[in-house]
Simulated scan of single mutants.
Amino acid sequence: MPGPTVPSPDVSRRRLLGGALAAATLPILGTACGRAEPAAGTGDGLRVTDLTGATVELPRPARRVVTIPLPAASMVVAVNGGPEVLAGMNAASRTAIEGSFLGTAHPELLKVPTEVAGAEFAPNVESVLALEPDVVIQWGDRGPGIVEPLRKAGLTVARLTYGTQKDLEGAITLYGKLLGKQQRAEKMVNGMRTALKRLRGRLPASGAGAENAPSVLYLRGAADGLQAGGGASYNHYVTELVGARNPAARVDDEQVTIDREQLLKWDPDIILLGNFGPAAPKDLYAEPALATLRAVRERRVYKVPLGGYRWDPPSQESPLMWQWLAGLVHGTGAPGLRDEVVRQYAFLYGAEPTAAQLDVILRTKANSGSRDYDDFGR
């Protein structure tokens, strides 16, 4: 999950302090207010500023989009209000869609070409050209080597920075302008800000990040190693947002590889297993070397949900992640979360998940052996 290490000045890394979270559903979608800066001229097409500050010009709103960064595919679908604009995506993006609610709601996404990039997001220029995109979405903070080949081939590129709440809101706004869906994008961004405000209003003014706050460690979920979310990660931001503490906060990086000795030394109250690998709570519970770990002893290891996209990195579903984690940290069980997922998905993807699908999204089976998860979100 690549991204910048510089936090958002307005909402990233703010030291929110904890306490018990009042049990309440957090409305995510706000009413669009104000007016977005116009992206279209009267007769000159679109002139849009991407997240690196560069100008992107299109003769009309994009109708064919290729996405190379992992989170971009599902976010473009959500901002557009449907999958028809997605002409190509990274293979790892489709991995998250396969077997997910988004793949069920829009099975045509499983047929979208994925040969658009190789290792480290290097573009497969010939494959991208064959898809005839109006615009290609690419990282803007990983060097010119993954951007210039696309531009030299005559392709229009819009670049992303990634990793903070500000970047997330900026990406949604960017897609809205590129697709001619500014009002829809604005509604999504305003809804996130409303959810942040209401969540913060339910937390006392001191405690987040403090030594006595519950500790939550995010592990990427890979079966072949332990990668923790450091102090520059979005996982750190979300942890402090809900009034908890990240034991890896002093590591000024997005991800850090650790060994079992370090994990035991940090001894977190809660461990979150991400969706970038198959690791499940049962794997940690069955590991003799981790038997003394507090989160293992108290059965507080949880697989992070996956819906339209993985809930661990920043995406259009991040407010649901905030609500889910707050329920775990404060023992409230996130009442109303299931209803909120249904409401959100109806807006984002045009389909409402069934009770059985909600269980899959919230990882009910994987988390069945973990504390207080039987009725989570009800």
Rank of each mutant, 00 (worst) to 15 (best):
D224K: 10
D224C: 06
D224N: 14
G225P: 11
G225K: 13
G225C: 07
G225Q: 15
G225L: 08
L226Q: 10
L226E: 13
L226P: 14
Q227S: 05
Q227L: 08
Q227C: 05
Q227P: 01
Q227Y: 15
A228N: 10
A228M: 09
A228K: 09
A228T: 13
A228H: 10
G229E: 15
G229V: 10
G229F: 09
G229T: 15
G229Q: 13
G230T: 00
G230D: 00
G230R: 09
G230A: 03
G231S: 11
G231I: 11
G231C: 10
G231D: 14
G231E: 13
G231K: 11
A232M: 12
A232F: 14
A232S: 15
S233R: 13
Y234P: 12
Y234A: 15
N235Q: 14
N235R: 12
N235W: 12
N235C: 10
N235L: 12
H236Q: 10
H236V: 07
H236L: 00
H236F: 07
H236S: 07
H236W: 11
H236G: 05
Y237T: 08
Y237E: 00
Y237H: 08
V238S: 06
V238G: 06
V238T: 06
V238A: 08
V238Y: 02
V238L: 06
V238M: 11
T239C: 03
T239V: 09
T239W: 04
T239H: 00
E240H: 08
E240Q: 14
E240M: 05
E240P: 07
L241D: 14
L241F: 09
L241A: 08
V242D: 06
V242K: 04
V242H: 00
V242A: 01
V242C: 04
G243M: 03
A244L: 03
A244S: 04
A244P: 07
A244V: 02
A244C: 03
A244G: 04
A244H: 08
R245C: 09
R245L: 09
N246C: 06
N246M: 01
N246G: 04
P247C: 10
P247E: 03
P247Y: 08
P247Q: 09
P247W: 13
P247S: 12
A248Y: 02
A248L: 04
A248S: 02
A248Q: 01
A249R: 08
A249W: 11
A249F: 07
A249E: 01
R250W: 11
R250F: 05
R250Q: 07
V251G: 00
V251D: 04
V251Q: 03
V251S: 04
D252G: 01
D252N: 14
D252A: 15
D252S: 12
D253W: 07
D253F: 02
D253P: 03
D253A: 02
D253V: 08
E254G: 00
E254R: 03
E254L: 05
E254D: 04
E254M: 00
E254I: 03
